[in-house]
Design a binder for these strands. Sequence first.
DNA 1: CTGTTAGCGCTTTCAC
DNA 2: GTGAAAGCGCTAACAG
Lengths: 332, 332
Amino acid sequence: MTEPRKRQGLPTIADVAELAGVSRAIASRALSSEPRPVSADKRERVLAAAEKLGFKPNLLARSLTTKTVNLVAVIVNHIHDLSDLDLFDLLISQIQSIGKQVIFVRVGSAERIDEFLRNGIAYHVDAALVFSDFADAATVRKMFRNDSVLMLNGMRDASSPAIIPDDQIGISAAVKDAASQGVRTAILVTGRAASPVEQARVAIYKAELQRQKIALISELRGDYSYQSGRQVAASPEWQKADAVFCTSDAMAMGVLDVHRNDFPQNRPQAFRLYGFDDVTLAEYEAYPISSIGYDKTAYISEILKFLTEPDLFNSGEKLVQVPTYFVSRSSS
Amino acid sequence: MTEPRKRQGLPTIADVAELAGVSRAIASRALSSEPRPVSADKRERVLAAAEKLGFKPNLLARSLTTKTVNLVAVIVNHIHDLSDLDLFDLLISQIQSIGKQVIFVRVGSAERIDEFLRNGIAYHVDAALVFSDFADAATVRKMFRNDSVLMLNGMRDASSPAIIPDDQIGISAAVKDAASQGVRTAILVTGRAASPVEQARVAIYKAELQRQKIALISELRGDYSYQSGRQVAASPEWQKADAVFCTSDAMAMGVLDVHRNDFPQNRPQAFRLYGFDDVTLAEYEAYPISSIGYDKTAYISEILKFLTEPDLFNSGEKLVQVPTYFVSRSSS
DNA sequence: CTGTTAGCGCTTTCAC
DNA sequence: GTGAAAGCGCTAACAG
């Protein structure tokens, strides 16, 4: 006569096994989502017992042996930007659809991030999606247990897979659009200089401007924000420019608001304005900003491919580029 | 002579203990953040060994015995709304500052949510912050292991603690503002009728309008979105209204864009417009919408109080209200 | 197909 | 103060 388990708290798989009159191993197999060898009648008894007891597996305990938690870390600097809204909602939804959940880590300006990460569950995730540019690929890789780190911040090396929008396409189209409309002089409003993504982007703008024989008369530094757009818009050089290219829509919105009177409903206008990101907001009537965006669905589908078949990424080419596009609105 | 542990993968506490020449128990105590009895020299040796090995505790294994994971679930419907940006960035940052990490769960329109939840680690969190209104307090409580569920969706019962902005204050002020400016007739643009928060909010609007002797000539249904604001703005009844109250800023933005010509820089204007949420965007020049908001810092600080001292919540009054305010901008 | 037996890595009695 | 040993709940390995 076996001693009945002292039931305290939630039912465990041992309780289920006992009630079903089978061993724990059988119960485990019957309850597994994978097909495992169990006779039909025992499986049924186990399932019934589990149902009756309201048994739910302790995934923490399971992960101890399976070495997988179905958890993905999303590492961001912060979520201030408008463009984040569009992206993360879809991303989370998609990740959940493959049975994984998302742990959101905001590194902000944090110091000692590695210590912070390692003292949290984020350290034990199956994969880390790194949007933040707080560290380079090698450092990030070192910060996590395994190599399943996907760089989405524009930084990359030979070892870590990365998905990066190909800014060249969109910027080229935008500058070409300007040229075709007779633009000869331009101002470039940039974001954080420290960011390598931004540096690359600026370089592309410069090359394309040169190619289209558009003179870059000034480069003004903002920080991607609406407020910084307003600030730089006060520049006196403004009058000499045929076009203004901003590396974020928010800055373009700030510029637009300061110069709103220069943008009558009908052309011609003082200067043509180009943003970047193609945030949903640019569809609002008050901010009809021509912009550069990328296909978020395609981008996220690549991320999911990495999550579901990491090997595929690790064997082949590590860099995936998703194309950007230029969308013309009445600001340009 | 003890067999050295076969080192495979990351160092465990057993490796540390072995290198330090102490038992696993001592190593565990020395590494604990809590003060536990260990002699000074052994503690030092353990710490040194851990450092040398680059040991990091497996929090999943730890949680198996401690029954706590330092993980908080944030349950949302989705993160489409502009007001979400303001809130979640701060919330995540604050939660991280107390050593916990955030698992973000988007329930969307999901069916079988409980099954979904239970199959993820979110089920094992220390606390769940429920912004989504997918279920009432009792159901939500049942969906998690423990009772540490904080209702932030406006739904509540006697058992679950809740933090709710006190809409009354802000709405009352907004309607009073309208009355003081001679408003006699008003249109109310509402959001999802199914939401109990929305129902309560609408009821408050009606009561306040009545109190101020403002006739509610029409109630139009939107869905909080900009687009729905544009749609309802086409209503012919519009001309008869002195004021329009929207239960979201996004809808107010839509209304504003459709009637932009009715809003000249100088008064008087066709009608006064009031939004709700006080999203950062309302500070942009193009959408100077008078709105109702609440102190997000105070709100989040209450949430953190719940996370750090749940007992305090469970013993005392379960409902915490944070005051709302009315902010007047040029739209009203 | 089935049950027994070891663990996963860590904390925690409980004697010493 | 210390260490042996017993788990936490689950899955995997290995004989039957």
